[in-house]
Structures are given as C-alpha cells and as structure tokens.
C-alpha cells in the first residue's frame, strides 16, 4: 500500500480522578478495584472540553508536525461514541477549525471503541485509490460510566488524529485485517445517557475472541510472528485485558508497555488505540514494526501491520506535545468536582 501515516497528533485532558476517590463514594474498596482493573487514574475533560475540542486539538497537533497545506485535505472522518451532537457532525467543526473546509468531504463514524480505526481504514482507502491527496482520521471520546457502575472506574477522555497521504510517509501500512461479528457485549440505546454491558460476557466472547483472532489472522496474512514486531498496541478497556491478550499471543511485556496508556489515563474508548499508537510513534525509529489491533463492542477488531520509514528521521515530532508529556500533565480532582465537570448534577430547569 502506498498510502500511509504522514503525521499524527494526540490530545489528553489534564484532569484525573483516582479509583480510591470513586470507591469512597460507592462504599467500595476503590484501591482494590483499581488494582483489579490495572488502573491508577483516569482522565476527565474540563467542563469546556468535549469530543469536538479534543478532535480539533489532536488534528491541529498532527498538522503542526506535517507542515502541509490544510486545503489539500480531501476527507475528515471522526470516530467516537460521544459526539456532542446526535445530529450535526463533529468532523465539520474540525474541518473549519483546521482550515481544511470547504472543498472536501466529512462524516462521523460510530463503532463503540473502534470507530477511530474504522475512520483510519476509510481514509487509507480514499488516499490509496487516488480519490483524495490527504485525509484525516480521528478517534476521540469523552466516555461516561453510569454513577456506581464498574465502568465509572475506567471510562475516560482523549483522542488522536492521523494525517494520511502517499508522500513523506513516516509509517507505512503493510496490511490491514478486520474481524466482525454480531455480539451484544456492550451497547447504548438511542436517548440513554449511559451504556449497558453484558457483565462477564464482555471478556472472552467479545474482547479476547475478536482481538486475538484479528491479531493472529493479521500475522498469518503477513507471514509474521510476535517476535517480528518491536511494538504491539491493543485495545485497552482496562490495564488487564491487553496484558493477558498480548501474553496469549506470545508478545513480551516490553512490546506492549509503551502503547499501554490505560493504567495512567483510563479507557479512552475510540481514542485508545490511536493514542497508544501515537505513544509508540513518539519514540519509534526507522525500521520499527508495529502491530495495532483495536476492538469495538458489538463487535469487531481492526488490525494494522505498520513499519516506520526512514522519513521518521526528518519528522518534526517536537512541534507538538508528546503523549508522555500529556500523560504527565495531570491535576487530580475529587468525586464532587468530577460529577460537576461531567454534568451529572441535575440543576434547576434541567
């Protein structure tokens, strides 16, 4: 494939809450809960941040590093399950805010936590076919767990954007593979504020079956083995699942650690694999090979086999903040501030 990643940018809000603080409110041992999930803290958007602002910041960071003329962007697709509007796209605001509008196409994607990688596949297809010169794919979320639900310990906020093109490609896409089934592991009905999940059903038949199958079939297709990769990035609904999946596939912990952000920032849903891959690209060198596998409930996995090119030597990463810098920029808040920020307090007139 000639189409590949030309640039990328990430964004993580700076507020955090610890599992201890959440557990205290619900009469649970939050520290033990956090340990069980492999989560030390999760990110929270400020009251004036949402999927649109996160997507704009991530896309602007990608453009700062590339130096391309945004008017050459032919498509913007944003994947999320927490778009601020039910009807009115996130992507049109992004297009205007990065000065890519109006000679272009835009749409929003939805597929639980893999909407961002679905957007990336579509942009790669448009660029590869020659229909557009550059395209932007974004995965971002500001997900919510219902108060008192186990998801409240993990559902967090963040996102990353990918600029795709054929010239000055810093990361080449060697191949893609997707695995899709009808699995009711997690859902949210129209008009409902919080999602529902199938409890234990979310593990084996959903996450593990899809991630493991997609990873194995991707390697089969490419004729590769786990040791051929420098890094592996897996969807990370908590800190435990990706570690167990990586081990089952035969990857060493060192291959997984760089792209595993959930322990520090929680599950960023559609932002998870895009952010994990950004963390890897932040430190990778020419020749590094990366396997990235997303997972979206409902259910499906997208796998990408990626090789970092020599172009990475000239790439100006430092023009935008690194993922590690945004992970470190943390301000802890208590549960009261958290429910206010996440608009869970019902006010007069609401």
């Amino acid at each position: 494939m000639d189409a590949g990643i030309v640039s990328y940018g990430a964004y993580i809000p700076r507020y955090r809450i610890k599992p201890e603080e959440i557990g205290k409110v619900w009469g649970e041992d939050g520290a033990a809960r956090g340990k069980g999930l492999g989560i030390l803290a999760k990110s929270i958007p400020s009251p004036d941040e949402d999927v649109i602002t996160i997507s704009v910041e991530a896309a602007r960071n990608a453009l700062k590093r590339s130096g391309i003329d945004p008017q050459e962007i032919g498509a913007i697709y944003t994947g999320s399950e927490s778009h601020p509007y039910a009807v009115k796209p996130t992507s049109t605001v992004v297009a205007e805010a990065i000065m890519a509008a109006p000679d272009m196409t835009a749409a929003d994607y939805e597929f639980a936590c893999k909407a961002g990688t679905a957007a990336l596949q579509n942009v790669l297809g448009l660029v590869e076919s020659g229909m557009i010169k550059y395209g932007v794919a974004i995965g971002a979320d500001t997900s919510q767990g219902a108060p008192g639900d186990p998801l409240e310990y993990s559902a967090s906020a963040g996102g990353a954007a990918y600029l795709v093109g054929k010239e000055r490609v810093i990361a080449k896409i060697n191949g893609m593979y997707s695995y899709t089934t009808d699995t009711p592991d997690f859902w949210r009905r129209e008009g409902q504020p919080y999602p529902s999940h199938g409890g234990r059903f979310t593990g084996e038949p959903a996450y593990f079956r899809h991630v493991l199958t997609a990873a194995k079939k991707m390697m089969e297709k490419m004729g590769t083995k786990p040791e051929d990769y420098d890094y592996v990035v897996l969807h990370q609904p908590n800190g435990k699942f990706p570690r167990r999946a990586a081990k089952k596939l035969g990857f060493a912990p060192e291959q997984l650690e760089i792209g595993l952000l959930t322990p520090r920032i929680g599950n960023t849903y559609s932002g998870a694999v895009p952010l994990g891959l950004s963390a890897v690209l932040d430190i990778s060198k020419p020749g590094d090979r990366i396997l990235a596998v997303s997972f979206g409930s409902g259910a499906g996995s997208d796998a990408f086999d990626i090789t970092v090119t020599d172009e990475m030597e000239k790439f100006e990463r430092k023009r935008a903040p690194l993922v590690s810098e945004m992970v470190e920029n943390e301000v802890f808040i208590d549960y009261a501030a958290y429910v206010k920020y996440r608009k869970k307090i019902r006010r007069k007139g609401e």
Partner: peptide, 17 residues
C-alpha cells in the same frame, strides 16, 4: 490559544466553540 467550548444555547440548542 486553545480550542474550547465557549457556550451552549441550553440543552437543546447549538454549541459555540
């Protein structure tokens, strides 16, 4: 400069950025 939500026209209205 950073990109943020400036205001919203109630729960049903448009969001200004």
């Amino acid at each position: 400069a950073t990109f943020r939500k400036l205001a919203e026209d109630g729960k049903e209205g448009v969001i200004f950025y």
